[in-house]
Amino acid sequence: MNLTAQTREKIAKTFIWAAAVLVLAVLTAIIADILIKGLPVINFSFLTEIPRSMGRAGGVASPIVGTVLITLLAVTIAVPFGIGTALYLAEYTKDGIITRLIRFSAESLAGIPSIVYGLFGFIFFVIYLGLGWSILSGGLTLAFMILPTIIRTAEEAIRSVPLSFREASYSLGATKTQTIFKVVFPSAIRGITNGIILSVGRCIAETAAVMLTAGSALQLPSSILDPTRTMAVHFYILAVEGISAENAYGTAALLIILIFLINVVANMLVNRFVAKGR
């Protein structure tokens, strides 16, 4: 084809615009559909009552509690180990067999379907360790699931801190530990937080792995050894078993709002307390 540069420019522009508009349209359609059908269901009693008759009536109080507890547990376990591993990979070792092995494992683990984590959690935590279907089993399983994401995003963020910052820090007589914790880590915090937020989103949205490890109990848990049901699982069961499309949509809308809120709040916290410099 013999097109002028201008024509090509126009075609490229049109194509890029079309792609962006299409993606935005699909996204808006999905969210709008869920919110339009779901929002009317959400009211005070929907938020505060536990589900009755399999979820046909009542609210979603216990799934909310289950979701929050499992996610909190998973993140609390995975974040320190994930960041620790990332720091080790990025700062404390030269590239060698061990680092390549760790990185390869993390990358492979990131690509495994969540149902496999669920099966592993079921066999190892639920059966072998005897933790039963519980918040603890679910949280541990999800911690394993999000660990690779946290390691990879944190390592990338730490590596992208410019050498010039490290040099400046060392030139002030800082030790390696001081440099890492006072300069490198704060400079990487935004990237690290993005990874954590991504992981929180995955925890909240996960169904297969939690169903196999935390069960689908409807009552409010009284300890982390009790089984529970997360909102995503609740939604899945309501929809698949045709129990209540109405309540399913309500739950879905609530999930979207929750994830949106977590994003906003996490960003605010980072801006307010950690990334003061930028």
Binding site: S164, F165, E167, A168, S171, L172, A174, K276, G277
Partner: peptide, 27 residues
Amino acid sequence: SVIRKRVGMVFQKPNVFPMSIYDNIII
């Protein structure tokens, strides 16, 4: 660290840390 404290360095490009002016000085 003691040697680097005694012999300071200013680099080619300004490389202030991504923190406040005050924190840059007192770090």
